[in-house]
Simulated assay, not measured.
Amino acid sequence: MPSRTRSVVSGAALATAAALLSPAGAYAGPVPGPPAPGPEGGRWTAAPAPGGGTRPSARDRPYFYLEGAPGAVLKDRLSLTNPGGGAVTLRLRGGPTRAGGWISTAGREIRVPPRTRADVPFTVTVPGDATPGDHPAALVAEGGGRAATVPVHLRVTGPALAALSVEDVAVERRGSAAVIRYVLVNRGNTALRPRLAVDADGLFGPVLRRAARPLPGTLPPGRRMPLTEPWPDPPVLDSVDVRLTVTAAGGAHGTAETSCTAVPWGAAALPPAGLLTGAALWRIRRRRRAPEPRQEERAAPGPGPGARTGRQTTAHPAPAAASRAGTDT
């Protein structure tokens, strides 16, 4: 036969609970045992309320995670714990992003008696036109000369779109070094962790190759993030095409290019002959880049009378080994 446990509550505790069961809807319960200083040194704390009426601990969730469709009303509870010897009055609000405005707490001000925990209900009303994806927000508690922020990871269900672009690419010289400036833009509806690859080609070949690597941090939907890429050893005399390529999970991909010319101070006084030499070198490089004509194309005669002109397709002969194998069979 299951056992039943009876709790005995003193008159003072009942008075405390009655004071906190206000129209705001906050629920408070006495914290059992003597107050422990803990990592906050005996000061009040704010955290997601644990389940089952237990005390918050390091094993509990460190943030809120809520998920729903546009138009949904999501509910949870914020736990305010006051282990000190005096009452505190805490102000609650949502922030700091647009999604923080979707949060409504049961009360804007909550009085927490000493050695007491108050679990404050709150709701998140997702607008009907909210875009699917991640919408970061937070619950902020302020009082007693300090503030605590509890992250709210809100995800609106629906088709996810991963889209990323890189814009405003520019190269800025800084003495013998340079820096590449650019802006990443998350044009989708889900948070992204971008990866960046850098390529630069001068008149005489590649001058910079950096394989794709993760960038620090996460780029939220709709956010623009200005970034820089150091370039400690750029060429001192060259015309360079710089290309940035960014990728992220979900197929997000973006690329952008810019050009820069590195000319030492003395090169500005070059005579026209020097400029002609540079142009000749550029022409040689362009010629080397051009594909060599195939042997069949060089040997093929010109079109006879009545023949069609245009792009020709050359059939490559089968390897000799394959030909012999066919003969033996």
Score class of each variant (00 low, 15 high):
residue 3 S to R: 12
residue 7 S to L: 14
residue 7 S to N: 07
residue 27 Y to Q: 13
residue 27 Y to G: 14
residue 33 G to H: 12
residue 38 G to A: 11
residue 39 P to G: 05
residue 39 P to C: 07
residue 41 G to A: 07
residue 42 G to M: 03
residue 43 R to W: 03
residue 44 W to V: 01
residue 49 A to D: 06
residue 60 D to T: 13
residue 65 Y to S: 13
residue 81 T to N: 01
residue 84 G to C: 11
residue 84 G to H: 04
residue 87 A to L: 05
residue 87 A to S: 14
residue 91 R to L: 11
residue 91 R to A: 15
residue 94 G to S: 11
residue 98 R to T: 05
residue 103 I to W: 03
residue 103 I to S: 01
residue 110 I to M: 14
residue 113 P to A: 13
residue 116 T to A: 10
residue 119 D to I: 04
residue 129 D to F: 07
residue 131 T to F: 06
residue 138 A to I: 07
residue 145 G to F: 05
residue 148 A to H: 13
residue 149 T to A: 13
residue 149 T to M: 07
residue 150 V to F: 03
residue 150 V to Q: 10
residue 156 V to Y: 03
residue 162 A to I: 08
residue 163 A to C: 01
residue 164 L to E: 03
residue 173 R to A: 15
residue 176 S to V: 12
residue 178 A to L: 11
residue 183 V to Y: 03
residue 185 V to M: 08
residue 185 V to G: 01
residue 186 N to V: 08
residue 187 R to H: 11
residue 193 R to D: 15
residue 196 L to C: 13
residue 198 V to L: 09
residue 198 V to A: 02
residue 207 V to L: 07
residue 216 P to S: 09
residue 218 T to W: 02
residue 220 P to M: 04
residue 221 P to Q: 03
residue 226 P to A: 09
residue 228 T to W: 04
residue 232 P to F: 10
residue 232 P to M: 11
residue 239 S to I: 14
residue 242 V to W: 02
residue 242 V to T: 04
residue 244 L to T: 10
residue 251 G to Y: 07
residue 256 A to N: 10
residue 260 C to Q: 08
residue 262 A to S: 12
residue 267 A to N: 06
residue 284 I to P: 00
residue 285 R to W: 12
residue 286 R to H: 12
residue 288 R to E: 15
residue 294 R to T: 14
residue 297 E to F: 00
residue 299 A to T: 12
residue 304 G to T: 08
residue 318 A to E: 01
residue 321 A to M: 01
residue 329 T to V: 08
